[in-house]
């Protein structure tokens, strides 16, 4: 563990998080948007495992939260992909610019 401080990992996870937010706001394809969101969720998992390992090594709360978060994000992805497939069946396309039936 020498030389590897908490901060390094935290910076990595923060970069992942904001890369995910940036991707969510700028991508123009439903699947890449979904991948960006996965980046956000994974950065959270890293954070939890990290805090537990470095700051509170005596307990397991963070690790458990990570496990649950991974499980839930798998469900989220499954539902999202099901809906995206449904859109593809309807319009043969998953570009955001084609989702324009609902707007002001």
């Amino acid at each position: 563990m020498e030389g590897l401080h908490l901060e390094y990992y935290l910076v990595a996870s923060a970069v992942m998080f904001f890369a995910g937010v940036y991707g969510f706001l700028t991508r123009r394809n439903l699947l890449t948007i979904l991948i960006s969101i996965e980046l956000i969720l994974n950065s959270v998992d890293i954070n939890f495992a990290l805090f537990n390992r470095f700051l509170f090594p005596g307990q397991l709360e963070g690790f458990f939260f990570t496990l649950f978060a991974i499980g839930v994000s798998a469900c989220e992805t499954a539902v999202a992909i099901a809906i995206i497939i449904n859109i593809y069946r309807n319009i043969r396309n998953i570009q955001v610019k084609n989702l324009d039936q609902l707007k002001d």
Binding site: F24, A80, Q101, L102
Partner: peptide
């Protein structure tokens, strides 16, 4: 199609929102 489009918009914003919440919760932890 309108229903599927609404579903996609909902699920993507919902996951994004829960991602934001989770990041907050991880920092609280």
């Amino acid at each position: 199609h309108r229903s599927a489009e609404a579903g996609a918009k909902y699920i993507l914003t919902a996951i994004f929102a829960s991602g934001l919440s989770l990041y907050g919760i991880s920092l609280i932890y």
